[in-house]
Write a protein that binds this DNA or RNA. Structure first.
Ligand code: MN
Ligand code: MN
Ligand code: MN
Ligand code: MN
Lengths: 218, 218
DNA sequence: TTATAAAATTAGGTTTGCCTAATTTTATAA
DNA sequence: TTATAAAATTAGGCAAACCTAATTTTATAA
């Protein structure tokens, strides 16, 4: 079994490997993702390599092995299931659940994820719109098109959020944007790509391009 | 905040302090309770003393301070609430829940215990019959009379189990004994205090004195 | 009381997962 | 190409939470 820390590394590496940009997963990228020092990452790369959960090539960076990928997906599965639990059953707000799930995801016990999944009614997506892996590791593809890619005049359904920080989620909360909300792009400012949008047919609101990039649409 | 390990020590000390026998809480008793080496316990006694969570007197042993007691009770509260969740919502058997709760109890987040308690409908007792402390730290008294103290001919309701090991609970499961089961003492064997009992008016079964001591009745 | 056993403590060590500072390697830009 | 910057690694260290082995203290029993 893997330690809490090993699991957090596997999950971070998995997340980086899912990025659309397809950049190599470097020591510094992992350090950045976890808020650790690169020197610490070097230690852990060695450890996970010994455990055959990753492969490391200074040219190509870090890659999960089949086993490493499996392990990572099981943690993601638990993370997302617990998030559903926290939101739907314990009535936490969606900007609060991530941190708690960050701890709950590490709890290991036979069947725990499966029972939780059943109890929650086999949810397909977590509260941030991310697909929940099934017990066999299969998962739907994440949404990847962002509002920033949308056309002026187009109307889109919020399917997921790319950034799950509580700052961003609180901002969405303030704008009354949730998964399922309909957003129409009224105008795009040429200068800085800011978007003027209408939320659920409400009045025009201006948001930054960074904002638009972090809203995923379906 | 306290670490996982500190919390486990606090909980063990709390449990020892609740024992009816009123023995002093010694280094070796704590070591025994946690399965650790006495030398390690000495380290931790020092640490918890520095943190003012316990007081240590080589004559009188370890005692929780007011703060230490408060902290310990909050962990016990979470432990027992999670046990209810695991049994009632995830449908684990009562011999499985303890180990999982042993991990869940350490998860810290604002309101978590309170939300869980509300979600579960404010249960008074955990699945082993132990009282669940309220948010303010108040808790009902534990059951203390055991079946071994019962009279021949008497009929008693199983209120709690003293031993919560999976071995004991599996044995109870096999005998179809649960919280609420009615047990009649048909005879007590003078030789070794074995008990001949009838479970829910079923046929006579013989159990050991050790067994009788671990069934608490109301 | 004194010998013996048990309990507590000390001394020193290990593993895990971090860190800083220094150094080496690799990339990039003039 | 060579200087500079960035990235990766090494070296050494630290705190937490354990451990074993040795020693000291305390209890108990002859
Ligand atoms: Mn985590
Ligand atoms: Mn999520
Ligand atoms: Mn525990
Ligand atoms: Mn219990």
């Amino acid at each position: 079994m893997n330690t809490f820390s090993e699991e957090n590394y596997l999950k971070a590496i998995f997340r980086l490997s899912q990025m659309p940009d397809n950049k190599k997963i470097s020591t510094s990228a992992i350090a950045e993702a976890l808020g650790n020092n690169p020197a610490s990452v070097v230690d852990m790369i060695r450890k996970l390599t010994d455990k055959q959960l990753i492969e490391y090539d200074k040219k190509k960076g870090v890659k999960l092995t089949t086993q490493g990928q499996k392990d990572a997906i099981q943690i993601v599965r638990k993370h997302r299931l617990w998030e559903v639990f926290l939101l739907e059953k314990l009535e936490y707000r969606w900007d609060e659940i991530h941190d708690i799930a960050e701890e709950l995801e590490h709890i290991k016990y036979h069947d725990l994820a499966d029972r939780l999944e059943k109890f929650l009614g086999f949810p397909e997506y977590d509260p941030h719109g991310d697909p929940i892996p099934k017990a066999n590791g299969k998962m739907a593809k994440s949404f990847s098109a962002s509002l920033a890619d949308g056309k002026v005049g187009g109307s889109y359904r919020v399917a997921a959020v790319r950034d799950t920080s509580s700052e961003f989620l609180k901002y969405l909360h303030k704008l009354e944007i949730n998964i399922g909300t309909q957003i129409k792009i009224i105008e795009q400012i040429a200068f800085d790509h800011s978007l003027i949008i209408s939320i659920d047919n409400g009045e025009a609101t201006t948001v930054s391009s960074k904002f638009g990039e972090n809203i995923l649409i379906s």
